[in-house]
Simulated scan of single mutants.
Amino acid sequence: MAEAVFLGLGYTARPLAEELACEGWQVTGTTRDRAKAMTMTAGGIRPLVWEAPAPLPEEPFETADLVVISTAPKDGTCPALSAVPFRPFMSDTKLLYLSSSGVYGDFGGEWVDEETRCNPGTERGRDRLAAEKGWQALADETRADLTLCRLAGIYGPGRSAVDSLRGDTPGARAGLSRRLIKPGQVFNRIHRDDIVRGLKALIDASATPGIVNFTDDLPTPPAEPITYAAELLGIEPPPEVRFEDIEDELSPMARSFYAENKRLKNDRLKALVGDLHYPSYREGLSAIYKGSDA
């Protein structure tokens, strides 16, 4: 039986873990919440209650064929990296580190691919890049097979412009449901289901690239999906607001999204999965509005 360990089991990682469990994998996943651990068991996942900086036990890693890391970095390091046992992996263990496209930095709206040199300008981007380097060093030491999965902005059911315009969501509170206008600014994004497809393709592949950008085909100005979501809902879109007029009102996270500007290429992702199910926000938001992600 193939074995997988998930360090972090949130919005993106959990659907993948449940898919693997349905395929017969023995899946272990970390959680800080003992109540959540009960729901994980119902989904076929063996819960491991863990919270940094406590060390992780050796046992799950000793025979793991796959380790998926989605824990967020903190203070320039990855808490999970600091907690893993010394030399924990088999030489052929596959590691997937869910990173961020924020590691690239600002390119003035130009296209970037996986060969582009990283120069993050935000603290969050620098922390991600430091975490990437830490996992790469461990993979080199143990001869594990690591892929750095650089994710664009994630949306999907419950986390989209449709949901934000319908009511109170984290995105709405962060200012992401406003139609902010900043000339030349584009956002990159990807539907959660296409992320899961890409991760599954990496798991199944006999040879994997070291870095893959996870993004859809259409970088756009940030206001476009909000306008389209309002159209789907049959409501007037929020008024356009100039970014410089309300910059000070935005949360630090929301401001950080506008600090850098680039267009991500996704050739490697599409070489793995073929055409995306949701090549742009239009297909993704339409599916969310209809209540179906088929």
Results as ranks from 00 to 15, higher is better:
81 L>Q: 06
38 M>F: 07
62 E>Q: 14
61 F>T: 09
86 F>V: 13
81 L>R: 09
54 A>T: 09
39 T>K: 15
78 C>P: 01
42 A>V: 12
61 F>N: 08
68 V>K: 07
37 A>L: 13
44 G>V: 05
44 G>H: 14
98 L>C: 13
52 A>V: 07
76 G>K: 06
63 T>L: 04
58 E>Y: 05
65 D>V: 09
38 M>R: 14
59 E>Q: 11
64 A>F: 14
63 T>Y: 10
66 L>E: 09
62 E>H: 08
99 S>V: 05
64 A>I: 14
94 K>N: 05
57 P>M: 01
75 D>Q: 15
84 V>H: 05
78 C>K: 02
82 S>R: 08
72 A>I: 13
48 L>M: 12
51 E>M: 12
44 G>R: 14
98 L>M: 12
76 G>R: 06
97 Y>M: 12
88 P>T: 02
50 W>N: 04
43 G>D: 15
43 G>C: 15
66 L>P: 10
49 V>D: 04
92 D>W: 09
63 T>I: 05
66 L>R: 12
73 P>H: 03
61 F>E: 06
62 E>I: 09
52 A>W: 06
90 M>P: 15
80 A>H: 11
37 A>Y: 07
69 I>V: 15
93 T>S: 07
80 A>P: 14
47 P>C: 03
87 R>C: 04
74 K>N: 00
70 S>C: 10
39 T>I: 08
55 P>E: 00
52 A>F: 10
46 R>T: 15
65 D>N: 13
75 D>E: 14
100 S>W: 13
78 C>I: 07
46 R>N: 15
44 G>W: 14
49 V>H: 11
51 E>S: 15
61 F>W: 11
61 F>S: 05
52 A>L: 05
74 K>C: 01
83 A>H: 04
77 T>Q: 14
60 P>V: 01
47 P>H: 00
87 R>Q: 11
60 P>L: 01
71 T>M: 10
77 T>W: 04
55 P>G: 00
82 S>H: 06
64 A>Q: 06
83 A>I: 08
79 P>E: 00
99 S>T: 02
49 V>M: 10
70 S>D: 02
93 T>C: 12
70 S>F: 07
85 P>K: 02
87 R>M: 11
61 F>A: 06
95 L>G: 04
42 A>T: 11
95 L>W: 05
100 S>D: 02
68 V>Q: 07
82 S>Y: 01
96 L>N: 05
53 P>C: 09
82 S>C: 08
58 E>P: 15
96 L>C: 12
58 E>N: 06
69 I>W: 01
81 L>D: 00
55 P>N: 03
56 L>T: 13
65 D>I: 11
72 A>C: 10
45 I>M: 08
43 G>F: 07
50 W>M: 11
39 T>S: 13
67 V>T: 12
70 S>I: 07
62 E>L: 14
